[in-house]
């Protein structure tokens, strides 16, 4: 089984910030908007390099989304930055009407997604955002797994016309995908080849899935790990091809099992190839305060939980 090495832990939000910095140099139409979280979103370099293209909106997320929609008229490519909670639930109707329904080329970039925001607790964590965003017609939904992939995705969405939700996080996590990767929106990345089970993971759970695959290998179970960075549109072909081989699947995400990647995969399988599936996700609950590692453990979002789910799903084949 192919092994992956952590080349040095980094936060995915820094991948966004560094990607944005690069876009500032290469794409004069890119503008950045932030709702009083410039440092948290790692947007400082863009702000310093291009003050005329950086817009501090203040703590007014609804206005930020509307301004971003308006800025597309005349050819700008707005990247909005705030926490995932304030990027989605707080401004759902603004995104729905002014961005998605109006087909505006806005990139909604959301940090501190999921439970790994940590100590701030459930008011700031969001485990429903993938569901909210994927429900919107025309919205592309991306959840990247590490620093390199987040940077690559940030660059890629600038060249894609249409509304995008880009989800990433706060904590430093393993950086293991290639620095020079080409990010293809809607294209799954197969990380390991396996024959016994398919593990479809997104975001921070991708590294956990790789750890789980190593544990499983030691136990004689061959796991095929697929990194789904784009939840919508979903690479159904890649998933179906894998389960045709393995006959069962575990989905893993830092999100509620309602509305997330798991449900999208389940729909695909129900339509084309009914297959036993287990869901590693939060169980319709809010989060709470704690360190990211503690929370991932308590809410069952780590490699151990994936191993457990694999052992279960294999018996259901």
């Amino acid at each position: 089984m192919k092994k992956y090495t952590n080349t040095g832990s980094k936060d995915t939000r820094s991948g966004f910030g560094d990607g944005l910095t690069e876009l500032g140099k290469t794409n004069p139409n890119v503008v950045a908007l932030c709702a009083d979280l410039t440092g948290s979103l790692k947007m400082n370099a863009f702000k310093d390099n291009h003050p005329e293209r950086f817009f501090q909106i203040g703590i007014a997320e609804a206005n930020m989304i509307g301004i971003a929609a308006g800025m597309t008229i005349g050819g700008k490519i707005p990247f909005t930055g705030t926490f995932a909670n304030f990027s989605t639930g707080r401004v759902y109707d603004q995104i729905r009407q002014s961005v998605a329904y109006s087909d505006k080329n806005v990139k909604i970039c959301a940090s501190h997604a999921g439970i790994t925001l940590g100590e701030d607790g459930a008011t700031h964590q969001i485990l429903e955002d993938i569901g909210l965003m994927k429900m919107l017609p025309g919205m592309t939904v991306i959840n990247t797994c590490d620093y390199n992939q987040t940077k690559a995705a940030t660059l890629a969405i600038a060249d894609f016309h249409g509304p995008v939700y880009l989800r990433f996080g706060r904590p430093k996590v393993a950086n293991f995908t290639p620095a020079d990767q080409k990010f293809e929106i809607g294209k799954a990345v197969q990380l390991t080849e396996g024959t016994d089970v398919t593990i479809v993971a997104t975001g921070h759970l991708v590294w956990e899935a790789l750890q789980a695959a190593e544990t499983l290998e030691a136990a004689g179970i061959s796991a095929e790990v697929i990194n789904i960075h784009t939840i919508k549109p979903l690479d159904e072909e890649a998933i179906l091809a894998s389960v045709a081989k393995t006959g069962c699947v575990v989905t893993a995400e830092e999100h509620n099992f309602l509305g997330g990647l798991g449900e999208s995969v389940a729909r695909t399988l129900a339509l084309h190839r009914p297959t036993p599936q287990e869901f590693v996700a939060t169980q319709d609950t809010f989060g709470e305060s704690g360190t990211p590692a503690q929370l991932m453990e308590k809410y069952g979002l780590n490699a151990a939980s994936i191993v457990k789910a694999v052992n279960k799903v294999i018996t259901r084949k």
Binding site: I65, A69, G70, I73, Q94, Q97, S98
Partner: peptide, 27 residues
């Protein structure tokens, strides 16, 4: 028509956005 409207309160933000782009474009 350049933006959907109906759900109220959103048009001023949109108009501001377009006004900002006009400034950036020297329009």
């Amino acid at each position: 028509i350049r933006i959907a409207s109906g759900s109220l309160g959103q048009g001023m933000s949109v108009a501001i956005g377009t006004a900002l782009t006009k400034k950036l474009n020297g329009d």
